[in-house]
Design a protein around this nucleic acid. Sequence first.
DNA 1: CATGAATGAGTTTTCATTCAT
DNA 2: AATGAATGAAAACTCATTCAT
Lengths: 199, 199, 199, 199
Amino acid sequence: MSVTAFHPDNRFMAETKREAICDAALSLFASQGIDATSTRQIAKRAGTAEGNIYRHFRGKDALVRHLFEENAMALHQTLAEAVDEADDPLERLGALVRGVFAFAADQPVGFAFLFMVSTTGAFHDDPAEWPLPMMLFAQTLKGGFRSGDFRPVDPALATGWIVAMTQRAVILHRTGIVRLGYDALVDQTVEAVQHLLRR
Amino acid sequence: MSVTAFHPDNRFMAETKREAICDAALSLFASQGIDATSTRQIAKRAGTAEGNIYRHFRGKDALVRHLFEENAMALHQTLAEAVDEADDPLERLGALVRGVFAFAADQPVGFAFLFMVSTTGAFHDDPAEWPLPMMLFAQTLKGGFRSGDFRPVDPALATGWIVAMTQRAVILHRTGIVRLGYDALVDQTVEAVQHLLRR
Amino acid sequence: MSVTAFHPDNRFMAETKREAICDAALSLFASQGIDATSTRQIAKRAGTAEGNIYRHFRGKDALVRHLFEENAMALHQTLAEAVDEADDPLERLGALVRGVFAFAADQPVGFAFLFMVSTTGAFHDDPAEWPLPMMLFAQTLKGGFRSGDFRPVDPALATGWIVAMTQRAVILHRTGIVRLGYDALVDQTVEAVQHLLRR
Amino acid sequence: MSVTAFHPDNRFMAETKREAICDAALSLFASQGIDATSTRQIAKRAGTAEGNIYRHFRGKDALVRHLFEENAMALHQTLAEAVDEADDPLERLGALVRGVFAFAADQPVGFAFLFMVSTTGAFHDDPAEWPLPMMLFAQTLKGGFRSGDFRPVDPALATGWIVAMTQRAVILHRTGIVRLGYDALVDQTVEAVQHLLRR
DNA sequence: CATGAATGAGTTTTCATTCAT
DNA sequence: AATGAATGAAAACTCATTCAT
């Protein structure tokens, strides 16, 4: 049995070793990069034995993939909820961008990791295999083009622009290069994205 | 005397081992990533001994930095020439974006490598230390804000947006996700960037 | 459970890989010198993988330091016991010299290694940082000077003389240059050292 | 022809590249140790190309041996002259010890190198193959034993003691552990050595 | 489930030596 | 005689992964 039962504070601790490993790996990956993080470091920070990682995951690669899917799913849910509450395409687009900022603020480590994987790791050649969050952008854009609310540009290209703009805005704010307050940052980016597509 | 004299094709070959090392390293870095490329691979592709890399560069890190500076400088020159031929801020901005596309078409490997370093590697926190090519964007934008040609947005943020949009457009085209012809890709991106800032 | 249980000879074998590494390294260092011994050789003789050395020690340097401290401590204990049994300074001095010979006979490899480090490696500039065994010589000599049993000479210099004489005697005997029997060697050296300081 | 002809100061410079290589190697060996000194370092300090070392010496080993023989010969000559001016064995012994100190003061680098080789490098098992300087000590001691001036101890052992004492005295003074002035250091050591053997 | 010692192929780097010029 | 680029073997060290307990 786990020692956590005696810890009233266990809500602040990883409930299981598996979670501890995930938490440790995620933060290390996000801050140092994936290649630069060793399984030893992960085990040490997780407070467990190195070999234990292999009980829970097939290997380092599988751990990376798991974390990616987990975080992509979380981001997807945030965005899916956001997009549901909006009616017209322009509002939906704004909601998506705001959703990304919300996720980045809420799960800074997960966001950094997602960003890391999506730029460092292999690109997916087929849009049908894009990660779910990007699919939401793509679908929303398509809707706007069909309804005639958006100016005519290549949908895949526009998706790329907007995702890139949003990601970069978060990074620039995080590194302190952009000195704007967070709300102004979000507002300006939402406005810019909408301006870009509004007919 | 060198064997190159007998090779009419020597303009396609590395003149010196140093260049062979640089060429090999650049293409491997660009295609596989920097961490995933070993000095062995570099030496093998360069057709030289591994130890020889260390006669020409202090180490792998120094090789990376050299390649970065070399390619950043080349991009900077392409952009500097492009920006010189334009008069008003909007045209200058368009010329810069076209310059990036031109560089990416002309030096695809160098561009891929620069992109790799700028996203993988450490970000520079201080805009004063940004790589030269980004400085050109920043200066052009500032000019447009001062003259009143551009809509008022945070300059650092706008620089980030535009660089990100341009980079992403190249990548999406290269991976085949965007099926547009290259000229259309360039035109649409230039138009979008100008639209984003035009008052 | 460990394989050693089935080995009645296990008292002659290293109980753990860590000890096997120490034993292998010590004997190789003592016979070939430290620089001339590679981690590969150590691993091979220890019957383990090279990387395993680095699980137990930070690196080759740390292994050397560990062995030095271990052996210096063993010598120190041998000498401390020897010196305790003697009353006046002259006898104490003799006991120390005999102690060194006893250690050299008992732990020939350890002694050779200590000798190697103390002459090859960096000298400690500050007597307060001398290795423990030398401290015993220094203290004994100081006692003799204070009590007036010893002729007046510089204490640090005299310590150096005596330690050097003793070390050299062991080496000369070991290499066969001095053909004396071991007991005669010890007796002559003890007598010489006492003669050197006796008032 | 050499550039030195135009240098009025060439008496301060190595006359030939060969000498430059020897000088550079000797000082590097003496300060860092032989293994820790690379041919590159030697070439750089000598102001010549690395490959040039191999025009003048068969390899690094040959260079080491050459330097050893050169310096051992120089020490031998210093000692031979010193020993010639003394009549009885005790004086000869004192002259030898003083000679070692004189050599160490005059050629500190050469002395440090000799010391390094004699402790680090291989020991000569056969007294007949001892380096020449040690032979002088051995012969002088034998003379003293034969004439009855010296107390009866094993000649090879006594030689070892005295050489060790002398070397150690120089080292201790050089490292600052012994704070005596140089003259006092020499006098005390000479006196001690003579006291050790005087009947 | 959990441990951590053990593995071995891999990495970057150094170095004595050779060779074309 | 001199150069310095080139070589390849070997060095120290890392790391994802396995395995006995």
